[in-house]
Design a protein around this nucleic acid. Sequence first.
DNA 1: CGAGCGATCCTCT
DNA 2: GAGGATCGCTCGA
Length: 213
Amino acid sequence: MILAPDRTPLTRDFFDRPVLEVAPDLLGRVLVRDSDDGPIEVRLTEVEAYAGEADPGSHAYRGRTPRNDVMFGPPGHMYVYFTYGMWHCMNLVTGPEGEASAVLLRAGEITVGAELARTRRLSARNDKELAKGPARLATALAVDRSLDGADLCGDPASPFRLLAGTPVEADQVSEGPRTGVGGEGSVHPWRFWTANDPTVSPYRAHVPRRRRT
DNA sequence: CGAGCGATCCTCT
DNA sequence: GAGGATCGCTCGA
């Protein structure tokens, strides 16, 4: 028998753990995004861990800056960054304040509000593509830098919550190198996804940029 | 479904 | 001034 997803909101204790413990534990959890247009819920299927200032793949690697400030703050907050001149990506801050660890939300299945998500993701070829990739996920949820720092635990004004959902069993958690991260940052299998889930994004190896001619 | 390729601008050096 | 935790488009299988 299949249990209905648990709608209990996760508390700050969930996030206040080592990032490599939190990241795989996020699979199967449900992120709620409220907005004036209506609610959207996503069952998370793919994430990546970024492990503090010592992680060469992390935005925190070169220390605290205005952009990554939220990463250094308390756990259970959303870190949103803008990249490639066009896109936003979402992370959940983990570990104790000052540690700068976070989990990039890479993909999920829209379980509530798919109709609204379709209006924001007109290029999606099917519903599995609505949140298949970190920028696509942020687009489907209408997330931008204005939501950087939003609290997921206990702030009634926050548009985000994380529900317990149906956590993925350990033997259904796949892992591999992080997408688009090169060099020393690629040696660890810190990308986690739900095995055989059709909403997981395709792996893309890191490609160094060539200058325009 | 996927390989190849260009877009586009913020952030930090 | 360089480069990026990516994506959409096109074309072919």
